[in-house]
Nucleic acid binder design. Structure first.
Lengths: 354, 354
DNA sequence: TTGTATGCGTTATCAC
DNA sequence: GTGATAACGCATACAA
């Protein structure tokens, strides 16, 4: 009786996971042959039609899918890419993540998503995770303006590309918006509309996009003959809170430092500024004109719709992936440091004055 | 000469990747001992302090990190979770993804992110990808109202939990908002404010959240003695476009089917409706009151701020992960089908009339 | 206290 | 045409 029970148990457990070994047992062919056939190498190895048919049939019957873990171990490639973003809940990052995910899928690659919370500590922990998991490449939105671990990864020859932010005087490949030109163009537009007293609400001063945007802002002012404007750059974070606080403070000191236009350096900053302006009873653009870096759907919904510098998110995401895939395929990169042009989208939040 | 060159090449290539084998060679201890020490089992196996010290020192020197692929193959667990969302660029999904990613990290788990584009085909492809990659569990935001593959995965004992949407009369565990109660409460509020002629702009009629919301809407009307209102549910997708189109159409037919309040069933629908209302020169709430399911930051920025049904995103994300981890750890779930309470957030977009 | 041998599922090298 | 056999890097049962 015990034997029978055991036999039944065995038969039942014989419902093992489909594997090459199992197909080999069931068809009578060696696992080498099975592997070859299933990888489409049957003809190349001149395996008989009969054997091929039997193997394929059994594989389909068992719904066989190769174990990617085993495959990854053997092949030393996982067909997985690591993506580290500072905050996936921020639409800017989410939209680019979408582009990247979609394109990666078209390459047959999957995405391991890590959220660094805009923190060096978690960023590095995430990088180590990706290293241990042997992802074939890494796409990183850096949270700081330099990172030794990233430099090491790059010099170790592991494919990596930086997006949005980058490191000064570093050879690590990156793709970002042309923040300098974008900010300069936006500032010029403000000046053309007759605004002389501008106020710039910046984000994280330690980040390259912010630095470049501020540089564009100041350069446009300088070219217009307006000098000594560095005091007109306030704020310190890419957050709604900072946009709100900085704007409130600016409004209070308006008698000392007057302004007719606000240039916010990110979408979150713009949202905060917008709130503060409305709370103070100031009307856009009648009282204060508003222009922001980083175009977003919601800017078209508020009234008046907000004039914005649009970043080429699709191009950024696709280029990042292309650059990464080229590294993975050992194709030398034509350009390793790319700054893509932005576009000024004129809406209703900037008024002409004189 | 050739020999020398070869020797040098060997020496150089001797810079192999750090591995247990390598540490074993360098320290003179067997790889079993190395593995044990590195997994913190040194004392348990009574490995000498001296050996432990030597092994740990060498591991640190080489910056050894265990290869998670090999580990996964051996241990049959990857410490990776699959997350399939319909659209990572939609803030609702992105915010929950953030919660999930963060909490997963605290468990030591990583997230493989797939975007199904709200399509059954890509959803199934994504599921197969996760199966092949042997993720320890799957969190799925379904794109349809049933899916045989999901049922099979669940009956195969693979940990899975559905989020936001779920399947009728299915045993697959899920967590979502209490869409019925939320919609009912919102509708009641509209009625209390004196509105009798309501119009509901729905999302995907094939999805469970939409069905439940519509049910709540109709039930509240019925309880108020208002009948024959099914004609007052229009639209067919959770998109801005559908919100826009449906609203425009409703405005045109306003003389036939008058309405004083609009109840949109998602944030994107609300955005579209908002646009259409403004384009038509209708003022909120003076001409038309607006209330939407799905609270979002941007609803506080527009003027007037929009009254909304807030879904407990944090609780949804965390509960989903808890339920998944319990399955992974073979802990029986106390409840497999959870509907979490929503909260009506009253702002300025609904006017009292009589 | 430590080492040997085996296997996870796959692909690749070689032999016949 | 096909099949042993080894190897990827790790963990572990079994020895000693």
């Amino acid at each position: 009786m015990i034997n029978i029970a055991q036999t039944i148990a065995q038969l039942t457990s014989e419902q093992e996971k489909p594997s090459i070994k199992r197909i080999s047992e069931l068809t009578g062919y060696s696992h080498s042959s099975v592997s070859r056939v299933l990888n489409g190498l049957g003809d190349q190895y001149r395996i008989s039609k009969k054997a091929q048919a039997a193997i394929v049939a059994k594989a389909q019957e068992l719904h066989f899918t190769p174990n990617q873990i085993a495959r990854g171990l053997r092949l030393k490639k996982t067909e997985t890419l690591g993506l580290i973003v500072p905050n996936i809940a921020n639409p800017f990052f989410a939209e680019i993540a979408k582009i990247i995910t979609r394109k990666a899928r078209s390459y047959g690659y999957s995405i391991l998503l890590l959220d660094s919370e805009d923190t060096l500590e978690i960023e590095n922990q995430s990088l180590r995770t990706l290293l241990a998991r042997k992802t074939d490449g890494i796409i990183l939105f850096p949270s700081t303006s330099n990172n030794e671990l990233v430099e090491k990864i790059h010099s170790d020859g592991i494919p990596i590309v930086l997006v949005d932010r980058y490191y000064q005087s570093s050879a690590v490949p990156y793709v970002s918006s042309d923040n300098f030109q974008g900010a300069k163009e936006a500032t010029r537009f403000l000046l053309q509309q007759g605004h002389q007293n501008l106020l710039c609400i910046q984000g994280n001063p330690d980040s390259s996009p912010n630095q470049e945007r501020v540089r564009g802002f100041l350069q446009a002012l300088q070219e217009a003959g307006i000098t000594n404007n560095s005091a007109r750059v306030i704020g310190n974070a890419f957050s709604e809170q900072n946009g709100y606080d900085s704007t409130r403070q600016a409004i209070q000191q308006r008698s000392i430092t007057p302004f007719t236009a606000l240039f916010t350096l990110s979408n979150l900053n713009a949202m905060g500024a917008w709130k503060a302006l409305h709370e103070a009873g100031l009307s856009v653009p009648a009282d204060v004109s508003l222009l922001t870096f980083d175009n977003q759907e919601l800017l078209t919904l508020v009234s008046p719709a907000v004039t914005a510098v649009d970043q080429p998110k699709v191009a950024i995401g696709e280029t990042a992936l292309d650059m990464l895939m080229q590294q993975i395929q050992q194709i030398p990169l034509a350009q390793t440091q790319l700054q893509l042009p932005t576009q000024l989208i004129i809406r209703k939040s900037v008024q002409f004055i004189n």
